[in-house]
Design a protein around this nucleic acid. Sequence first.
DNA 1: TGCCCAATA
DNA 2: GCCATATTGGGCA
Length: 604
Amino acid sequence: MPSGADAHHGHDTLKYHLLGPSLTKAGQDAVDQHRVSDIIYHASRGSKFFSNEEAKDKTLTDKISHILATKLLLERRDLRPDLRRADDYIAELELSRDLSQVVVHIDCDAFYAAVEELDRPELKEVPMAVGKGVLTTCNYHARKFGCRSGMASFVAMRLCPQLVCVPMNPAKYSAKAEEVRAVLAEYDPRFESASCDEAYLNLTQYCREHHVGAEEAVQQLRDQVHEKTRITVSAGIAANAKLAKICSNKNKPNGQFSLARDRQPIMEFMKTLPTRKVNGVGRVFERELDAIGIKTCGDIYEYRAYLAQLFGQKAFQFLMQCYLGLGRTSIQPAEDYERKSVGTETTFKEMKSPDALRMKLREIADELEDDLKRTGFKARTLCVKVKLHTYEVYTRQSSPPFAVHKADDLYKYSLPILEKLMKKLPDMKLRLMGLRATHLVSAKKPGIDFFGRPTGSSSAATKNKDSEGDWEVWPEAEFEEAVRQERNNEMNELEKLSQEYEKQQPQPEAQWTCPICILPQPPNDTTFNSHIDFCLSRQTIKEAVQSTTPFTNTPLQPSSTRPTPSTAQKKGKRGRPRNEPPTLDEKTREKRRAFFTLPTNPTP
DNA sequence: TGCCCAATA
DNA sequence: GCCATATTGGGCA
């Protein structure tokens, strides 16, 4: 666990990071994570991968220093307006809380491994993983040793020498997944596939029509899945998708957990829930939150006045919804979402010969042509990605004069990007190359729709199942798109307003005081930044924190001079009939980039 | 606005 | 000796 301001001592944070992204997955609770991280650390030390992780860890540690420094600054300012905004937003969210839906998250237990075990029952008795190079999943025997999905297999072998690795069989998994989905459809024909082995269902109607409770229905569903497919699944039952997802992890494997659909139990549940358990909080954000003192969703409340300035508006909203246990209540088939990009990438043995690299690009272009053909798109822009032998990643993009989909064109218009990169990075040695098509245009119905936008961006709704039913989907897709557009405009408007508000702020102070060295400093931003950097380099944040008078949030200026902009209140719905929280973001990712973008004191 | 990067699942 | 694909958000010019 990273722990507060001293987390960056030694290699603790790096070791923690190396544990991988799926730390919250089930089966790890009884594992000695310190032993595991030590083994991983020593197994990978010295590799280029390791050096890169080390560098990333350093960057993050610096970023966290900046966040802490910013927080120190904020503590010396009048936060009442921010507090007010946060409380207003909470009130608004609370009004929109929807407890009327029965949302269920279904998660297959160690899916790929389970499918392999069906064919080879002897694998059930031993630690086993699926995947070469990197484990895509592993059974619960393997997890007892600390093995996890996403882990390099040589590391996994170090943790568990008896581990049996079997190669992937994607076709087999999707066939099995289809069997599972057939059962799910009986309970909610409009269920939503979140991935190959995960789905959301809305059982409100089913429960009503069959006069059964949610838990009973889910038990029955799970039994039926097992009976028909021999696959065990875990389930979470709650009032929204976010909670359901968390709940499905509670009694894994082969179990279910139901969270009462009432405000109080939900608040209690969130209070002690580690932030990392929430979909959207990963290793980085967890550490950033931890640094300022937030370990659980309940802790968020105490810091509500800081969050927008430290992490940005989106992250603020996301976190407030975490604190309140709010989430999406509308479940819809994945086909209803529009695709934004199609891409392919491959890792290969390091190479640097320009000719070989061009050939590689050609292969990838061929590959992408297939994918575009299959999905029925053309690309208005192409994005080349390269990963150096050092694991540094670069991406460069360009827009061909017309929408492309043929391999020849893909190659023709992406080659200059590659050449430019080769010029910029002479002798670059690559381990990965990728090509991605964005700004998609439907290859089927080109033209301009009646909103004046190129079709494809919206006709994407019809991408799957293209044989029938397209036309019925259209109006609704258009409507959704229009609604989204409107919401965007609204947001931009408010964004602008709040920026203008920042500009109008009275600038009473000619100087600001560095919270670290406590000396008055000249007023402009550049000296502000470099001074803080300088101070930070002389003194660790921990010392800085200790040397500063804690939390007297003394107003530096009368709050009356700071009118409260109501950006938070207005955002969201404005009379639109929607039964989900204003920013439908389960998907909203928290954000960083917190450096010094706060309305810092003065720029005269 | 378009480009690039990083985080996340 | 450390994957592949897609989405999202933020900084910046």
